[in-house]
Computed example of a mutant assay.
Amino acid sequence: LTAAIAPCALLKDVHLGLALPGRGPTRLAVVSGHYLYYHYGCDGVDDRGWGCGYRTLQTLFSWPEGRPVAVPELAAMQAALEDMGDKPPGFRGSQSWIGCVEASLCLDHFGGPQGRLRHVTRGAGLQGELERLYSHFAGGGGPVMVGGDADAQSKALLGVCLGPGTEAYVLVLDPHCWGAPKNPSELQAAGWVGWQEVSTAFDPHSFYNLCMTSCNSQEQTCALD
C-alpha cells in the first residue's frame, strides 16, 4: 500500500443539514454521537476499486467521538487480519476486499466500538430489517456497515425514516467518493450521503451482512451532544 495522492481533511457528521425524504417522517431515527467520513484516497492511498470496506470500517472506528484518534490505517487492518489467521499469508499489502465479518474482527482487535453482526438472507433485501435498524438508531447506536454478494459495494447506514404508509428510507453514506470534498454540502449535492428509498437502494436478489456498532459496555459513555 503506497501513498499516491495528497491526503485531504476529513469531514465530520456530513449528513447534517439534509432535508427529510418523501412526505415527511412518521418515525425518524438517526445516528447519535459523531463520526468522520472516510472515503477513497482520503489518507493518500489510492484504493479505488477495492478499499470501500476498509473506508466504511474507518468511519465506524471514528464513532462516537468523531476523531481520527485510534482509527487504524488500511495497512494495519490488513496486517491484523493476517496475524489473527482470518486471512492467508500475503494478504497484507494486497488489494483484497473486506466485508462486515472482517470489520467486526477488526473492531474487536483494535478496541473500537462493539460490532454486532446480522445476516439478511437473499431475496429479502433490507425491507425486513427496518424495525431493527430503527430501534438501533433510536437507542443511540452508531453507524451500520452494509455489504452483500450480488451487491458487494460497502456502505454505511446512518438512519431510518419510516412512513407515512409504506414509505421507507435509509440514510446512506457512500465511501466511493474520490477527491477532496470541501464541505458536507458538496457531498450531499453529489449524492455521496443522502436518503434513499429502501426498495431501490438495495438489491432484493443479494444477501447482506450488517455490522451494527454500539458502545462497548454500560460503563462507556457515548458522545451524544
Rank of each mutant, 00 (worst) to 15 (best):
5 I>F: 06
10 L>Q: 01
12 K>D: 05
14 V>Q: 05
14 V>M: 03
17 G>Q: 05
17 G>Y: 00
18 L>V: 09
20 L>N: 11
25 P>R: 00
29 A>V: 06
35 Y>M: 04
47 D>K: 02
53 G>L: 08
55 R>E: 09
58 Q>H: 05
69 V>T: 13
73 E>V: 14
75 A>Q: 09
78 Q>V: 02
81 L>Y: 01
83 D>M: 07
83 D>V: 11
85 G>C: 08
89 P>Y: 14
91 F>Y: 12
91 F>H: 13
92 R>S: 15
92 R>N: 08
96 S>E: 15
97 W>R: 11
98 I>E: 01
105 L>F: 14
108 D>F: 01
115 G>F: 09
117 L>N: 08
117 L>D: 08
117 L>E: 00
121 T>V: 12
121 T>N: 11
127 Q>A: 14
128 G>W: 12
136 H>G: 08
140 G>P: 05
145 M>P: 10
147 G>Q: 14
152 A>M: 13
157 L>G: 07
160 V>Y: 04
163 G>C: 15
169 Y>N: 07
169 Y>Q: 11
171 L>D: 07
172 V>A: 03
173 L>T: 12
174 D>C: 12
178 W>P: 10
184 P>W: 02
187 L>M: 03
188 Q>P: 12
192 W>E: 02
207 F>G: 06
210 L>T: 02
212 M>N: 04
218 Q>A: 15
218 Q>T: 13
224 L>C: 12
224 L>D: 06
225 D>L: 10
